[in-house]
């Protein structure tokens, strides 16, 4: 948590209608031994264009929270409101639409489509959402240093290169919110830093909000705010 994110500040942000508001989010997983609660009532907000780092130990539920915000999974209870739209009450199709147009996700495992070229991967989400902008894509490609790799297939690229493609794909659609789940988890420190710098640059250029889950304190420090997830609840750090 950064110095700004005191409970009072968080409360203040809540009252001025932020872009993303999460209220009392609870989620548990079924196992052979019974249900294990992962999130026990998480609240936070995120303003448009702001960035927030989500830290915590492995297994603390960072990814779970991110997936819930990204409309990829269902919460047990609680609210997630994005731009005034309650994600938790949407139908499957509506949530898919949100994922296409408003929220982009960058995963730890890159999740590129192996049978498309780099260029095709980059433009895919944008085309899916009907927001393909050749000029913006070209700029992204150039800034991510992918121009020479455009005709290659993902399996021919190194980890760093693949992650850059993932970021490019996510931003090509100009989302309202970019989610990143341990984006540098599979990269070495130097590469990870370089990728991170690029990502933050582009996020600022795009003007979208940025929510990143990471266990690296160092990385978390580069974002505007930090919160920590412990025992299923957010705690100020």
């Amino acid at each position: 948590m950064s110095i700004d994110a005191t409970p009072e500040n968080l409360a203040a942000e809540r009252t001025s209608a932020p872009m993303l508001r999460v209220d009392g989010l609870k989620k548990s997983y079924p196992t052979p031994q019974g249900r294990i609660p992962v999130l026990r009532g998480v609240d936070f907000t995120l303003a448009a264009g702001a960035s927030l780092a989500l830290t915590g130990e492995s297994g603390s539920g960072k990814s779970t929270l991110l997936h819930l915000v990204g409309a990829l999974d269902d919460a047990d209870s609680g609210d997630i409101v994005l731009d005034g739209v309650a994600l938790t009450r949407l139908s499957e199709n509506a949530r898919a639409a949100i994922r296409r147009e408003r929220i982009s996700v960058v995963f730890q495992q890159f999740n590129l489509i192996p049978s498309l070229t780099v260029g095709e991967n980059l433009s895919f989400q944008a085309r899916l959402a009907g927001r393909y902008d050749p000029a913006w894509q070209e700029e992204l490609t150039a800034r991510l240093g992918l121009a020479t790799l455009a005709a290659r297939y993902p399996e021919e690229l190194s980890g760093g290169q693949q992650q850059r493609v993932a970021i490019g794909r996510a931003l090509a659609v100009r989302p309202r919110l970019l989610l990143a789940d341990e984006p540098t988890g599979n990269l070495d420190e130097a590469t990870g830093d370089a990728v991170m710098a690029l990502a933050l640059d582009l996020v600022a250029a795009t003007g979208c909000a940025f929510l990143m889950a990471t266990h690296s304190e160092r990385l978390a420090a580069r974002l505007q705010r930090r919160v920590r997830l412990e025992s299923g609840l957010l705690a100020a750090q």
């Binding site: 199709n93 639409a97 489509i113 049978s115």
Partner: peptide
């Protein structure tokens, strides 16, 4: 073999009907 692709597509916002 396309399962990963399918999952990615879903993550990118392709609804089941599509």
């Amino acid at each position: 073999q396309r399962l990963p692709t399918l999952r990615t597509l879903r993550a990118l916002g392709v609804g089941p009907p599509h």
